[in-house]
Structure formats: structure tokens, C-alpha cells
């Protein structure tokens, strides 16, 4: 028992003449290591297992009852009889039966990064083998996980000839990227011309009389071409809204209010950000005005509008 031996050694080292009581606080390091390591004979069964490991194969031994023990034992633990001497190659893949995550590996561990100790039942075996699984993350571990050995290049006939087991490939990453050159088109370009100057350009359908903002070239209701351009003010009414609490790196900081804003003189709401007011004070019917970024920062883009902020007028009837 190494720990008992260490304790005994420490007591002996601290047995010098020191005042009573002080000895209890003494600490000394101590190493117990047989020089060069113990030499151990393997016997024919374990020896065969290790010899096969050195060749990159894993074998088990058959019992008289027909079970395959991996790693092999010299005697059948169920019956006490000798095993048959018949060896069978198993694996190399296997299934994790149980596991425990090592988040801070120790120097003697097979891997320097976090890993799992797992009971792995290799294909064709009736018993499970303990080994390390290099899974990267504890969330990747589960009962039933399929794993395969990762062999060391230089093998000596030792269980560590298998550096660790690794999960089978069940997933690939498939990058998809398409690059576009986007032009706004005639209608949107016209609208953005206005936005660049701080005005909203819309249009009126000659057939149904509805005013659309942003500017467009045809009426979605009537299907006719629209020719009449109109400028609408940058004030309007919040018809309805959502308070967004789900953070997204591409979105404004949460909570943010995305609202349907019906600009005065327009017949269709636009979806825009509401600011300058706490999210929970936004109301349906609230009157708002666009807050434009300073002129020198403007581009032909909707980002010219910082957000819509309350005007302070009484709420509109919906």
C-alpha cells in the first residue's frame, strides 16, 4: 500500500528531536519507486495478449463455457477452471458501457488533456476493458458510444500500446459559402437615395390608391405598374411589436423592441427597431419618429435610421 508506506516514511523522517507539537506541522516530500521498475512475468495468457497488442491486434481468450474474456484472464472467474487456450481476435471497435470524465489529468494518465475512463466492450468480447477515451468534451461521451483504438507508432507489448480509444466518425463539418454581388435594383435604389438624404420615398398605386413604403414599381394587390412617387414623413405609429430577449451577435443588444411602424401617409407598416424608451414602456398606438444618424455618417442604407423613438404625442387610435 503506497500511501501507508509514504506515511510510515514521513514519520521516520520527522523523528528528530524537535519540540513536542511542532512535529505535527512538518511536511516532506517522499518518493517510493523501485529503481528501473518491477519485472513481471506475464504467463502464457497475458503474454499472448500483450504480444498481439505489440502487433496492433487485440485478442481475448475463450473459456470452456464459450465466453471470450478481454483482457484475457488465465482462469475462468466464473468456474475457477483454466481457460481454453484458444485466442480470438476482437474489435478493434467497441462500445462504451460506462464512463467517468477526468477533467484534470494527472501526470501518470495516458493523456494530458481531459478524457474519459471507460469500460469498453470490444466487438466479439463478452467482458469490458478499461481504457481512456479521447473524446474532447464530456458532452461527447455517452453509454453506447462507438470507439476505436488509436495505436502508438512504437509498440512494446503493453496496454499503453493503445494510446487511447477515440469515437468513431459520425459527423463531418460541411462548409457552405456562396459569395454574391448584390445590387439594390431600381426601386430599392430609389428608396435608398431618399434614405441617404434622410427622407422616406414611397409610391401610390394609380389603381387602388394605396401608398407603399419602401418605394416599389408594381402594386402587389393590383399587379399594375406604379408611377407616382410620394415622400412620406419620418413619423408614424407603432401598430404592434415584440420585445426580443434572445441574444444574437448580429442583432441589437437585448432586450430590443422590433415594431411594426405605420408611417404617416403610408398604408403598409415597416418593421424597425424602437429605441429611446425602455422596452416595457413601448405601447401599441405609440407615436414615434425616426432617429437618423448624423449626416456625416450616412450611407445609402437602412442603418441610417438608428431607431424610432417616441415623439411624446398622445397615442393614436388603432
Amino acid at each position: 500500500m503506497p500511501s501507508d508506506a509514504t506515511a510510515a516514511g514521513t514519520t521516520a523522517a520527522g523523528a528528530a528531536a524537535v519540540p513536542e507539537g511542532e512535529a505535527r506541522s512538518l511536511v516532506a516530500g517522499h518518493v517510493l519507486e523501485f529503481p528501473g521498475g518491477y519485472t513481471r512475468t506475464t504467463g502464457p495468457v497475458i503474454g499472448r495478449f500483450l504480444t498481439e497488442l505489440r502487433d496492433g491486434r487485440i485478442v481475448g481468450v475463450r473459456t470452456a463455457g464459450g465466453r471470450t474474456l478481454v483482457p484475457p484472464l488465465e482462469y475462468d472467474p466464473d468456474t475457477g477452471e483454466a481457460v481454453t487456450g484458444e485466442f480470438a481476435e476482437v474489435g478493434p471497435a467497441g462500445t462504451v458501457e460506462s464512463w467517468s470524465w477526468v477533467s484534470e489529468p494527472r501526470p501518470a494518465h495516458p493523456l494530458e488533456r481531459p478524457f474519459a475512463w471507460a469500460l469498453i466492450r470490444l466487438d466479439g468480447a463478452d467482458t469490458a476493458l478499461v481504457h481512456a477515451v479521447d473524446a474532447g468534451d464530456a458532452r461527447a461521451m455517452r453509454q453506447g458510444l462507438r470507439v476505436r483504438p488509436r495505436w502508438k507508432a512504437a509498440r512494446t507489448g503493453h496496454i499503453t500500446d493503445i494510446e487511447s480509444f477515440v469515437p468513431e466518425v459520425t459527423r463531418i463539418v460541411s462548409p457552405v459559402r456562396t459569395e454574391y454581388r448584390v445590387r439594390p435594383g431600381k426601386a430599392l435604389a430609389r428608396f435608398l437615395d431618399g434614405v441617404a438624404r434622410g427622407v422616406f420615398i414611397g409610391c401610390r398605386c394609380g389603381s387602388c390608391g394605396k401608398v407603399y413604403v419602401p418605394y416599389r414599381l408594381s402594386c402587389p394587390e393590383c399587379g399594375v405598374a406604379i408611377t407616382e412617387e410620394v415622400e412620406v414623413p419620418d413619423t408614424g405609429t407603432i401598430t404592434t411589436f415584440a420585445i426580443n430577449n434572445l441574444p444574437d451577435p448580429r442583432a441589437p443588444e437585448v432586450p430590443f423592441v422590433s415594431a411594426y411602424i405605420l408611417l404617416d401617409g403610408s398604408d403598409i407598416p415597416m418593421i424597425a427597431l424602437v429605441g429611446g424608451v425602455p422596452a416595457h414602456e413601448v405601447r401599441q398606438g405609440m407615436r414615434v419618429r425616426a432617429v437618423w444618424v448624423p449626416e456625416e455618417e450616412r450611407t445609402a442604407s437602412m442603418s441610417n435610421i438608428k431607431w424610432f423613438a417616441p415623439t411624446g404625442e398622445p397615442d393614436a387610435e388603432l
Partner: peptide
């Protein structure tokens, strides 16, 4: 797309109003 303001809201954010 370019030229629009980025207001990532997903389906829930779209239907909530």
C-alpha cells in the same frame, strides 16, 4: 442582404407582434 438594417428576430420574433 446588404442595404437593410440587421434586426435578427427569427420566426418567433416575426410572429410575436
Amino acid at each position: 442582404l446588404p442595404f437593410s438594417a440587421s434586426l435578427v428576430v427569427g420566426a418567433g420574433g416575426y410572429f410575436a407582434p
